[in-house]
Design a protein around this nucleic acid. Structure first.
Lengths: 230, 230
DNA sequence: CCAAAAGTGTTGCACCTACACCCATGT
DNA sequence: ACATGGGTGTAGGTGCAACACTTTTGG
């Protein structure tokens, strides 16, 4: 209960924001990184983030710093963990880290518009460069959480546009989880799940047209039944 | 990336530490609370905690402040969440909150020894008074996490002494989860789980003696199969 | 007609639940 | 002997995985 008045402790907020993007003819899970323009770690890639202001809450700070550094607004945002080892930065910084999801159709739009600076670049989470501070470790943990949570919830929904086919949704799950899913079992699982609403529209291609679905806005994507075990 | 220099932001660390204790002839889940001796909320009960020092990590701070305020050393400690709403305290405080488990046989020992102050009192988590700050909300969340995690891991282990019978372990789970478990199914589940090692000792009573088990120190209590669904 | 993806049906396994039943001890 | 909890056996249900099969389009 005694106040320590030695070196000041600063609070930063960073965000690992995922999206699924096409890369070399296949979909991969990617995150935007910001190239640092000052020490420490000048020139290295780092997570988007910034200092917490005294007038804003943690969630607000995550959204603000994400917008300021990358021009992006997440479709899903959740606190991940707080990192506070004394040696993670030359000065004492506690980072409250968030993880987020961005609909794939909004990546380009948001990137094109606004004041998205040139020192932002999307990176494949499975092929990251060495990052500033302990950000590699942070990303690893965020990926683990995303994969984990994808298994027992429907958050992957937040990675797709409003309308989508079951194959598209399955593709997202396959990209996130990193393995193939059985189309018929996937269908049954999600059709009985209340989270999806079938429309009367169909998407054409060189094959039988696929029914288009929407999300059921009344259902919380966070906690639904399991999708597939392991 | 701009440093905000308005009101200073302070970082506190608090811990919700659970133990199972006998109360009115039955076991209940309890946590120690500390009576505040200064404003804000002078006289109200609050979670044990204190200010983060610039020379210590978050985990260390949780252990230190827990020891300083209650004299307790947890058998399990895990970060819960960081709370940082602007209105949760008259001054701006970000609280990194931990949740912890304490073996039931160490509660009295630790309470008796050391310098455990008189303004610490154990409270039934299902009958808490109004707490200082947003601590009621924090405890609710910690209880939810504990119950949740107890369902798919073996952390309840950390609430018992080294040696115990299956009935005692089942009792802990029943207290934590708040419902009865089938003795035979519970036995099968845990006997096949690698986490328990049978000894050749038995505990007597007015019935058939029960075999005493130990934990398998090689197994991480955090991630094991499900115990019982919902 | 063929390829390709949409969509349906069925079977088997793994696991969990419920409950019947036997075992070993103290009183 | 008997009450009490320790411990075993077993049948039923649920849910998912695997995979065979039918349907509907474009070329």
């Amino acid at each position: 209960m005694t106040s320590a008045t030695d070196e000041p402790i600063r609070v930063a907020v960073s965000t690992v924001i995922f999206s699924v993007r096409s890369r070399d003819d296949r979909d991969v899970l990617m995150i935007p990184l910001v190239r640092r323009t000052r020490d420490p770690h000048d020139g290295m890639w780092a997570l988007p983030g910034g200092w917490l202001r005294s007038v804003e809450g943690l969630d607000d700070a995550a959204r603000r710093t994400l917008a300021e550094t990358t021009g992006l607004a997440p479709n899903w945002l959740e606190q991940l963990y707080s990192f506070g080892d004394t040696d993670r930065s030359p000065t004492r910084v506690v980072s409250v880290v968030y993880w987020a999801l961005l609909r794939s159709d909004l990546v380009e739009a948001q990137r094109a518009g606004a004041d998205a600076p040139e020192n932002v670049e999307w990176h494949d989470v499975d092929a990251l460069p060495p990052l500033a501070f302990d950000h590699n470790r942070i990303v690893d943990y965020a990926v683990w959480r995303l994969r984990n949570k994808a298994g027992y919830s429907r958050i992957a929904a937040a990675l797709l546009p409003d309308e989508f086919t079951l194959a598209e949704l399955r593709g997202v799950y396959e990209t996130v989880l990193g393995r193939r899913l059985d189309p018929s079992n996937f269908r049954r699982l999600l059709e009985g799940s209340e989270a999806l609403v079938p429309t009367e529209e169909f998407r054409s291609g060189p094959h039988r047209p696929a029914r288009i679905f929407r999300y059921n806005a009344d259902v919380d994507l966070a906690d639904l039944g399991p999708l597939a075990r392991d």
